[in-house]
Design a protein around this nucleic acid. Structure first.
Ligand SMILES: NC(=O)c1ccc[n+]([C@@H]2O[C@H](COP(=O)([O-])OP(=O)(O)OC[C@H]3O[C@@H](n4cnc5c(N)ncnc54)[C@H](O)[C@@H]3O)[C@@H](O)[C@H]2O)c1
Ligand SMILES: NC(=O)c1ccc[n+]([C@@H]2O[C@H](COP(=O)([O-])OP(=O)(O)OC[C@H]3O[C@@H](n4cnc5c(N)ncnc54)[C@H](O)[C@@H]3O)[C@@H](O)[C@H]2O)c1
Lengths: 220, 220
DNA sequence: CGGAGCTTGTGAATTGATTCACAAATTATG
DNA sequence: CATAATTTGTGAATCAATTCACAAGCTCCG
């Protein structure tokens, strides 16, 4: 099977979100053009993205909203639920653990870990913060699919190593440092400082170059 | 001036973070190779990225850590501080407002807004949550550089419109919806559900294709 | 039923990003 | 000081992603 670009996968997520919204509004069909308009891309891009996985539309008509929704959920692996653990019960870990958007899409937070004795044992909505010392044993027993890293930057690589050794194959990191893992472990990272620096760069270079040098109008 | 790719700017941020770490450890020089190893890329990529902005190294020796740090801060617009406001004093807005990493890099949160009367007026570390109704007046007076959007998805576009109208030129959104703005406003978005879906896709397609189809070993 | 009007799916062309590869510059060494 | 060992900076080549452009399929309407 062809290798799918990360940018394509990101767009599929965007299309799916808009499709679900359209589904709720009772819309029956949608064109690549409309999908593109809302997703900040072009209709050719939408069709090309979908074409990697098959042929989902009807010429002259567009795509059936419920069918394309279902196909995208299938492609993205969202027909099942995923068992997620969070390491680091700090400010960001807490926000994530309580975020309803995850559960709605099938990402079930099953455990939260920390190393601070003052946090271990505290309870948030049916989740008890556990001691990170026992994480390997827990991973062995429960085989979580995805681990979210919400520990300070200096700790992140060390925890990632432990997670990988214990068998975790997918990591979402919020640490502002690069995480290195073997090739069979997928890592995504969200680096908020980097995003702000991207804005700082854009604002600065806009000024430097005098006239507006307009980047995209829709967010990536 | 040449248009700089977003991927290049992201990598510059990564290089800078590692350079600052090296600076703290007292390292005097560093090679493109070492920078690449830590940043999860190649030495040619590092040199190419830097070459868009000038020539910073010494052949045979590498780059002076403090000089390259300073140049990158300059390029990224980090010699000044930036005035940041946060809209939405919920779970994620709270975490962000208290995050020390932002201030350390010169992003100063000057105000937080919400529309919930129970939240308006509450104080977090010297910041009082203000009523979003008055945000236009405040923007007029204080001209914040960057607005962080931490409101529910349904509210995000509406707030973005108000911000743009009031003159904001850079937005960092955490809403899981696409934000559309005129071309002279830069938007970055952090969509955590999308990141998890990317992991779901990777795990699923790995399974589907039997053998490992290894993506990158270093996070993007 | 036939033609006008859309819209998909997809090779081909184009644009963009990364990697290669090597001359030029510098340091280290004997 | 000459030679070996590094490492940068950058055109050229390659690889990847996006856009173009159009044949083919479907609907709708008279
Ligand atoms: N708070 C934010 O808004 C924000 C924004 C961007 C990035 N981040 C990043 O997210 C990470 C967490 O940030 P935070 O603000 O939540 O920090 P925090 O200090 O509030 O929380 C970190 C938590 O991790 C725990 N911890 C530390 N080492 C650990 C270990 N080895 N094992 C298990 N738990 C450990 C600490 O006890 C603490 O509870 C950091 O890397 C930070 O840079 C946070
Ligand atoms: N909590 C998380 O970990 C998390 C993770 C990913 C994404 N997000 C996204 O971040 C956003 C905020 O999430 P949250 O979990 O903090 O939600 P939340 O409900 O805790 O907070 C949202 C806040 O926005 C305020 N608000 C609503 N409409 C407003 C308006 N028009 N003007 C000003 N304030 C308004 C609400 O009063 C509330 O305080 C959402 O879009 C969510 O999808 C959150």
């Amino acid at each position: 099977m062809k290798r799918i670009a990360e940018s394509t996968v990101r767009r599929l997520s965007i299309y799916l979100r808009f499709l679900e919204e359209s589904e709720n509004r009772g819309l029956a069909t949608i064109s690549s053009q409309e999908l593109a308009r809302r997703g900040g891309t072009t209709s050719a891009q939408v069709r090309k993205d979908l074409s990697f996985f098959g042929s989902f539309g009807k010429r002259g008509l567009g795509y059936s909203v419920p069918e394309l929704s279902a196909s995208l959920r299938d492609i993205l692996g969202l027909r099942r639920t995923w068992n997620v653990i969070i390491v680091g019960a700090g400010k960001i870990g807490t926000a994530l653990a309580q975020y309803r958007g995850f559960r709605q899409r099938g990402f079930i937070v099953s455990a939260v870990y920390d190393r601070d004795p003052r946090k271990i044992g505290t309870v948030w909505e049916s989740l008890t913060v556990r001691d990170v010392a026992g994480i390997e044993k827990d991973i062995d027993a429960a085989a979580p699919d995805i681990a979210v890293l919400a520990v300070p930057g200096e700790e992140a690589q060390g925890i990632a190593n432990r997670l990988v050794k214990a068998g975790v194959k997918a990591i979402l990191s919020f640490a502002p440092t690069q995480i290195h893992t073997p090739a069979d472990v997928t890592v995504r990272s969200v680096n908020m400082a980097m995003e702000l620096e991207g804005l700082s760069f854009a604002l600065t270079s806009r000024d430097r170059n005098g006239a507006e040098d307009g980047l995209d109008s829709a967010s990536r």
